[in-house]
Every structure is written in structure tokens, then in C-alpha cells.
Amino acid sequence: MNRLITVSPSPHVYEDTTVKRLMFDVVIAMLPALAMSIYFFGMGAIIVTLVAVVSCLMFEWLIQKFLLKQEPTITDGSALVTGILLAFNVPSNLPIGIIILGSLVAIGVGKMSFGGLGNNPFNPALVGRVFLLISFPVKMTSWPVPGGFNTGYADAVTGATPLAIVKEGLGKGDQLSDLMAQVPSHMELFYGHMGGSMGEIAAVAILLGFAYLLFRKVITWHIPVSILLTIALFTGIMWMVNPQTNADPLFHLLTGGVMLGAVFMATDYVTSPMTIKGMWIFGIGIGVLTVLIRVFGAYPEGVSFAILIMNAFVPLINAYVKPKRFGEANNGK
């Protein structure tokens, strides 16, 4: 026989899932949220997204090519996801320079300094976001008010997010019922008519993306559901105890990036636990921390910090929370 046959260890068939396909599924899942933010914030949303994506891809390529001397892997789509997520987490009128800096921190510090995809302990987009939030607190918290599709990039009118309005008002001793009148109704919050970061506003679009991710089996439901349940339960109890000073659970779920964080940020493969049990612990931890930061902390919004803090616990969770082994507990006779 003149042609050679191939020999390899079993198995000999493979599922057609690849890292690239998973990443592009995530991108597809983020499209509805992107569309909503373009609808509400106009040109600004497009510019911010483009700048973030292009600079993330570019930094990844540059670092791999010249610093780490690796074969660049930007086609796997992970930098694309980081770019879009970073854009989702900033206001739509953020100056271009700041976005590029954020991308550099996200890719350079958040991802490549740990050895690239698969080795980063923290979600790169969140590292970038938190870095910007601490470095440019004013720029990062002057949220454009939804102005419709025709809003230009620089001329957006800014205002506070609903969460900030409530938090500040309560701090000043205002009545919650008065404050709730100032913020958009729950229905408006649901489809995203509020001030805030680009991707976090439209809960409906994010839920659509969540459904797509579940359908494509990219993620399991455990992390998002455990986060949302915990937040709903925690804020629900506080609301029942004193509805005068605590906003209702639905308000908490629909504002301030809870949805975005739960569906797209906390479920990042690299920085979330490996086991179902671990995922529950992770999700509950994020939920509790988010509410603690929101209610007792200095920031009106806590999802990013909560996820980053829980990211740090993931190696610990992985080390101690093991799947139940087959035959471990002998239940037969």
C-alpha cells in the first residue's frame, strides 16, 4: 500500500465545537444588546464599540507578536468579545483616548500578563472597566441620557443612572417614593430607556442573548440564575423589612448592569468555576457582594467589583468544590 494510514489514540470522532465558534456565539448573543444601545445612544455607541474592539484586537496582536513572540491568535475571537464587553461597560460618550487606554489595560494587564487566553484569573473587560472607573471617575460616571438614534457622539446630554439617583437621594434623606418617581418605570427599565453604560441598559436584549447562549449550549444556566436569584432574594427581604428605604427587587435586577454582568461577564469560561456546585457558590457570592456594595458601599453600582472579587475566589472554589465522583458513595448493597 503506498498511501499511509493515520494512527492516533481514541476517540476518533469529535464534536464540531471549537473555541472560535464558542466566542462567535457569544458575539452573536451580544448583538441585540448592541443594537439597543445604538438605538438609544446613537453614533456614540457605534464609535465606542468600534474603538474598543479595534484597539483590543490590535493590542492582543501587538503583544503576542512583539512581546511574547507567539503566533498571534486574534482570530479566535476572544479579544473581540473582550472589546465588545469593554464597550458595553462604559458610557457612550467616553473620549477615544480613554477607551484605548482601557483596552490596553484589559488586554495587556487583564489577559496577556497572565499568559493569554485561559490563564487570566480576572475577566479582562472588567479589569479594564474598573481601572477606568478608578482613574477617570467623572468621565466614567457621566452617563448620557438616552437620546435616540440620531444623538451625536460628543453632544450627548448626561445624567445620572437610576441607581445613582436613588442612592444619592437616600443619602440626602429623601423619601424613596419621591425618588422612584424620578426614575424610569420598570417597563422602561426593562427595554432600556435609562442612562447607563452602553450594554447594561436593555434587560430584554440581554435576556434574548442569554436564551441564544443556552440554546447553543455555550453556557449553562447556573451562574446567571444563581446571581439573579440571590439578588432578588436579598433585596426582596430588605424591601419587605422596610419598603421606605429599600428599592424593590425588580428595580435592583433591572438596573446597573446586573443583567449584563450575570449573563455575559460572570459566565466567562476562564474566570468562572468548573463544577455546577462551584457555579452556584460563585453566583451566590456575586449576588450577595453586589447588594452589599449597592446598599452599604460607596458606589451606587457593584456588579463589576462583585464579579472581580469572586473571580479571585475561583481557584479556591475549583480546588475545594469537586464534582461527585461515580461510585464515591456506595449506595448499593
Binding site: T18, L22, G118, Y269, P323, R325, F326
Partner: peptide, 28 residues
């Protein structure tokens, strides 16, 4: 066939936990 016999191209582990969830013996 030659095409089917080829393995997938290797890339790095992204810790997606799919291997953990499919292991019938509950291993990692």
C-alpha cells in the same frame, strides 16, 4: 476518511468545563 481522521487543531484550555460536565465518572 482522511478529513474525518484528522484531529482538531489544538489551542489552549479556556476552562469551559465541558469536559467536567461530560465525564460519566465525575472526574475533572
Amino acid at each position: 476518511s482522511k478529513d474525518a481522521a484528522k484531529r482538531k487543531k489544538e489551542s489552549t484550555c479556556i476552562r469551559c468545563a465541558k469536559c467536567v460536565s461530560v465525564c460519566p465518572q465525575g472526574l475533572e
